[in-house]
Design a protein around this nucleic acid. Structure first.
Lengths: 137, 137
DNA sequence: AGTTAAATCGTAATCATTCCGAATTGAAAA
DNA sequence: TTTTCAATTCGGAATGATTACGATTTAACT
């Protein structure tokens, strides 16, 4: 997902192009890690001081709804990152030291359905945590 | 994990046997679902009115540390349930309607290590969400 | 029974998130 | 370009979950 594609998605869905949204999207386009609302506020403190947390949370939720951002819960915080470009469902390794993301071409769900006859599967979460090679010193 | 085994683990680790802890452990022994701190307070409102939330949170954390309880994060809340008895690492299906848990004899981690050479894997999370047969009407 | 460290209570503080009314603004229409 | 209006933002207050803390109580040991 690029900044331009995100802007296009905004327009296609009738959302206005505002300076706040541009700043937030540019930030996520330049940082592949998962960011919390407070991270966004801090990162934009110079470029856009005083951006309301309401504005940040509202836009993060909107962007996640449009699948511009992906969302997860880490350490009791909602975190967001730019949605992956490549198609095909997959999952992520997350470095707990530097936040680096490594895509995992693997999803266990294909084998799960047959283990749960009669169940309705609506969602799943699979994440691997640890240290990337650079942080494994 | 049974109530008796949990009490034994408390003693073996130098933790006192108190009425609060007994009430909390008995609750988890009788309810296989994931419960939040507020659920514990409500469930024990009659048997133990006025139990401090500090007491509940502190004990839930202690029990999780002793692996008496397992912990997860659902809907922005820390939730706990009695640790599974059966040995062998596994994961869970969680019914979003009634909270029923179904064990999944499946873990994707065996195939993950080879996809992440040089990475240090420290933890992972795999959960499946949906509706159990009774709630799939 | 006496001692002591652990546990509990009640309340206040903290942190993330959401809500709300007033003011501003992007973008479509005139 | 100006007008218009709903969408957006702001700032601060409200909420909800969790943690911190001093004072008091208590389980388990001698």
């Amino acid at each position: 997902m690029t900044f331009e594609k995100a802007i296009r998605l905004l327009r296609e869905n009738g959302l206005k192009r505002t300076p706040s949204r541009e700043s937030i999207l540019r930030l996520f386009a330049s940082d592949g890690r998962y960011l919390a609302a407070s991270d966004v506020r801090d990162a934009l403190a110079f470029e856009h001081p005083g951006m309301s947390l309401d504005t940040i949370y509202r836009n993060l939720s909107s962007f996640a709804g449009l699948e511009i951002l992906e969302e997860t819960e880490l350490g009791g915080e909602r975190k967001f990152r730019m949605h992956c470009d490549r198609d095909g469902h997959h999952h992520h390794f997350i470095c707990m030291e530097c936040g680096r993301i490594q895509e995992l071409d693997l999803c266990p769900m294909d084998r799960v359905a047959e283990l749960l006859p009669g169940f309705t599967i609506e969602d799943h979460k699979f994440e691997v945590y640890g240290r990337c090679p650079d942080c494994s010193s």
